[in-house]
Design a protein around this nucleic acid. Structure first.
Lengths: 204, 204
DNA sequence: GGTGCCATGTAACGCGTTACATGATTAT
DNA sequence: ATAATCATGTAACGCGTTACATGGCACC
């Protein structure tokens, strides 16, 4: 949802060709180092926006060289953009793939949890190093916005590292708690007395 | 990529019907509150895994009631799972939709940056409150893993809030830096002397 | 005139979502 | 009987990616 709306915003500044959209996005988002946008996504997204009537192809009544299409935002597109600005970004938390991996390792015994943590931490450290180096070596005239974006990435990685430490410290406790396997119910509406199938965990 | 591999892991424990996969995933990932998996994704993912030969439908030579398919992991599937375990989760940082939104607001003047920050912060605080409340009220027998997952979410939101403060504090500085608009080059190979189109930023 | 590279796409796929369809079983 | 609810899917779409195709212009 983000790229789509960003493109609407860029077209709101002025009409653009696909490649101009790409250039402008990279300029705004930091390009290469931070948020690389692939050309293909620009063109497919523009096509979808056009289908939905949020942008139109500019009709250049002169002799435009064919094979180039300049897009313009429509009123519907501007409305959509306003809605985007008014709506907070949904909090995406979770969806943490590493957590899943760790849980599965514990549940299946197919991998060593400590090793997973080791590998993940190494990867995080490497990325942290890359980003901090990048940040220090930044052209002093680099846009402040990109610096802030880098800072955010760094802060997130640091949070992840701290969380890894928490996990590692309490891994043995986690390991002792078996994952409850819910029973497979037979088909059909649940019986009246099925409510307490899952037994209360008894006090130790 | 995460759900797909998690399903492989669950099938590695034992063969399961689609709904059992769903149940087991929720049990492992925390369900509802943290990572809700939609039934449709289970079935479509299982179908794709089957196409790729990573799982097979169990052949129950008895009289199985048709309309139910139990899946089993194949050796290829186990290999894939091992590869997953050995590969660190790619650092996803960036892709921050809010950053984009803010930059676009600055570039287009279609929205007030302070208001965006206000809205976003309100949303983050609300979610933070929900999570901390949830964490405190947790059934004391709740899996430690889920508690840790909640903690991670909380830590990420706190990092986001701190970052918002940074942004807000330096917003005026950011505002003063106009976004550079790259020139649209004409088609074709770049000329020899085009290298320095982008003028060196002069010292102030 | 070929080579390289930029500009401009299309096709096909993977993951994930929403919406819809249909059986099975039990409570009322 | 029918309503409710669980169980089991299919269809269609949106976003994003990778791979491929093509046309133009500059340089040698």
């Amino acid at each position: 949802m983000s790229v789509r709306n960003a493109i609407l915003g860029l077209l709101c500044q002025r009409n653009r060709y696909g490649y101009e959209v790409l250039q402008a996005f990279q300029a705004v988002a930091g390009g290469r180092e931070t948020w690389e946008l692939k050309p293909a996504q620009v063109y497919t997204t523009l096509a979808r926006l056009k289908e939905n009537g949020l942008v139109v192809e500019e009709i250049s009544d002169g002799e435009t060289d064919p094979g180039k299409r300049r897009y313009a935002i429509t009123p519907a597109g501007k409305a959509e953009l306003q809605r985007w600005f008014e709506t907070p970004v949904p909090v995406e938390h979770q969806r943490d793939e590493f957590f899943l991996k760790l849980m599965l390792a514990l549940a299946t015994g197919q991998a060593d949890p400590r090793r997973l943590i080791y590998l993940q931490r190494a990867s995080l450290f490497q990325e942290l190093h890359r980003l901090t180096t990048l940040r220090m070596e930044l052209d002093p005239y680099t846009s402040l916005a990109h610096i802030l974006l880098l800072d955010q990435a760094i802060m997130h990685i640091e949070a992840d590292l701290r969380w890894l430490e928490m996990i590692e410290a309490r891994l043995d406790e986690v390991r002792k708690q078996p994952i409850p396997e819910p029973e497979l119910r037979p088909r059909g509406r649940p019986g009246k007395h099925e409510k307490n199938i899952i037994p209360m965990k008894e006090e130790p």
